[in-house]
Design a protein around this nucleic acid. Structure first.
Lengths: 104, 104
DNA sequence: CGATCAGGTTTGTGACGCAGACTAGTTGAC
DNA sequence: GTCAACTAGTCTGCGTCACAAACCTGATCG
């Protein structure tokens, strides 16, 4: 036996703190722009940009770029898949947590 | 301003899925041996070993090596610090989560 | 004009998680 | 006694990735 393959319970894409913050904020506001998200999450621009790129690539968020008052503006919203995944992720964290708290 | 330094809310050392599992399991059993932890967490030996090394280095767990029935046996327990940190971590996750669930 | 600012994107790199190779010692078969 | 197989871990190489700093594009200001 070449070592047991563990079940992949926690999705790293979602679990990463920066992305967890992004997704969680998004799940409460329906849509947000880049600057708002940066303030809300405390991430740097570069960081936020690359996290968003990954989330978009994975289909968890939808990104729309426009110009607002002659300035570039990036609008981000959770997709259905994204909403499902973040919800599921919190549920999985709960089940891990219950390992330590048998029953009140 | 050279980009705002974000507050380090989530401790990566603890947040990492493998270690989160280890710490959470430990917080329910007072102490455990290597093999038990491997089964409980689903990690491979190599993985578990290096995670434990990091946790020990950070003072979150205490590791004691013995021989039990002529075989090497590694016994692991949460330290006070470790117990505090895992509790605090769950609390921080809660506060992040509340961002998306204003109040029922 | 040149400088500055807003709003992002691209790049360099060190750290790290992963799994598989390796080690040390034990037990069982012959 | 010695050979093979097993237990209990540690060590190593590699690919990935998060981070921040440098960079880019266009608008606005002096």
């Amino acid at each position: 036996m070449p070592e047991p393959k563990p079940e992949p319970v926690l999705d790293r894409l979602v679990h990463e703190p920066g992305r967890l913050a992004i997704l969680t904020v998004l799940s409460s506001v329906t849509n947000a722009d880049f600057v708002f998200l940066q303030r809300a999450t405390g991430l740097t621009k570069g960081n936020l940009s690359s996290h968003l790129a990954k989330l978009e690539e994975a289909g968890l968020v939808a990104i729309e770029k426009r110009f607002v008052r002659k300035k570039p503006n990036t609008n981000i919203a959770l997709t259905k898949v994204g909403r499902a995944r973040i919800t599921e992720h919190w549920a999985q964290l709960d089940s891990i947590r219950r390992l330590s708290e048998p029953s009140p």
